[in-house]
């Protein structure tokens, strides 16, 4: 008896899911761009709220899919915010993406359960902020590094924890539901 061992993914469903996640990410990206200047952050730096979507998709959509969503969101940012502001956010985003991939897929920390998505989220937020700071310094050519660093590190713990807990609670359910939807 021949049984196909690989299930074909329900493509239309997959596309819808990509769509929903991308729009969520874009939505969050837009909302955070409304905040004029975060106290104690360098001008142009953002909170990195859309990273939570990317992280979520990394847990069940895999690297390629998440990359797509990340690029979609970044393209939107580029088109609406202008090149220079985009560069800072994008550097942060790339760093956060890379770190999240490493933590989730490579190495034992997450896989063996030493840290949860909250930990990944915190580290990802920290990298996001540090990369934004570095980008700001390079782009403007001035050195405000030391002035902003402490606040940005602290802020990443706070934001990372909040988004991390939300992810901890929601990711498993999303993963299951998504699996059911995609592999039908």
């Amino acid at each position: 008896m021949n049984k196909s061992t690989k299930q074909k993914p329900n493509y239309p469903m997959l596309i819808s899911i990509y769509g929903i996640l991308s729009s969520l990410a874009i939505c969050l990206s837009y909302l955070e761009s409304l905040i004029p200047q975060i106290p104690f952050f360098p001008p142009g730096a953002k909170l990195g709220l859309s990273n939570v979507i990317i992280l979520l998709s990394l847990t069940f959509l895999g690297i390629k899919g998440s990359l797509f969503i990340f690029l979609a969101k970044s393209l939107f940012a580029l088109l609406t915010r202008g090149v220079f502001a985009f560069l800072i956010g994008f550097s942060g985003g790339v760093g956060a993406f890379a770190v999240s991939v490493i933590l989730l897929y490579v190495g034992r920390l997450y896989k063996r359960g030493y840290i949860s998505l909250a930990g990944v989220s915190i580290i990802s937020a920290a990298v996001f902020n540090v990369f934004q700071l570095i980008a700001a310094v390079i782009v403007t050519g001035t050195n405000f590094l030391s002035a902003y660093l402490p606040f940005m590190l602290f802020a990443s713990v706070v934001s990372g924890l909040i988004t991390g807990i939300i992810l901890n609670l929601s990711a498993p359910t999303v993963k299951k539901s998504a699996a059911k939807l995609i592999l039908r």
Partner: peptide, 17 residues
């Protein structure tokens, strides 16, 4: 259910924002 926690949390975060 974790679904309702999630939705609630999500809505809360958007509102907070």
């Amino acid at each position: 259910s974790s679904k309702s926690i999630t939705t609630f949390a999500f809505v809360a975060v958007i509102l907070l924002l």
